[in-house]
Design a protein around this nucleic acid. Structure first.
Lengths: 120, 120
DNA sequence: GCGGTAGTGAGATCGATTCTCAAATAATGG
DNA sequence: CCATTATTTGAGAATCGATCTCACTACCGC
């Protein structure tokens, strides 16, 4: 399961992880998936991602520190990943000013994806 | 209920809204609260805020456009609001580059709040 | 093998959200 | 006013993701 997660570039829900593991032979119960994810989260190896659809997703934290954020299409639900250096810079600068340590941050954008914008 | 929400500066969960309405005399069922929130959300008068604790919160959208984001303490759960102009600027610039329209955005920071950092 | 320990997962449970439906309320038209 | 029809309401049921429980398995050292 660690392998599966590590191979993902973007976020997966616990259900998806369980399903994919089942498809590839090694069936794993949901409870174990959640247990593993909790552990990995404590070890700072995966990040929780909450896109507001009621499902918590998880994605691996890149050792290099690079990471992306997510844009959710409110029409079709598609999730698009993006990265933006100036956004990160702004967040880093913010860290100095804030009376709050920052161990993780998450930016979620809502709107319409390219495809849905065209036929708006 | 509209009044109550409008008076709030920061986010409230549906439960909190129902409770507060009850305390101030006008008891309102949870179902109605959710219904109203859904409507207000469609009208772009309230924004959904998801801080990753399994509760969706809602907060009024300021007509002027100004808004804040949230820092969650992973230790005590306290939610701190903050605003940051350069963060907004970065997001505005991003809007031009992204193949995705932006109708709303949300930034959630995780870490330890001032109080919890001190006794870390 | 045997006792002990840790890991597993099916199913129970929990809690937030959504759905349902009958009752309450408001709007309409005599 | 009263009757009739739409609309809104909210208690409780249903749903669904996440968590918890616990009997069961797997593994380890002796």
């Amino acid at each position: 399961m660690i392998d599966l997660l590590a191979r993902q570039s973007c976020c997966l829900s616990a259900q998806e992880i369980s399903e994919r593991l089942g498809e590839s032979g090694r069936s794993v119960g949901l409870a174990s998936v959640y247990r593993a994810l909790e552990l990995l989260h404590e070890l700072a190896l995966v990040q929780r991602v909450d896109l507001g659809d009621g499902n918590t997703r998880y994605e691996p934290i890149q050792p290099g520190g690079e990471h992306h954020h997510h844009a959710v299409c409110d029409r079709c639900g598609r999730v698009t990943a993006f990265e933006d250096r100036s956004l990160e810079t702004a967040l880093e600068r913010l860290a100095g000013r804030l009376h709050h340590s920052i161990s993780a941050h998450e930016v979620v954008i809502h709107g319409n994806c390219e495809r849905c914008s065209e036929r708006a």
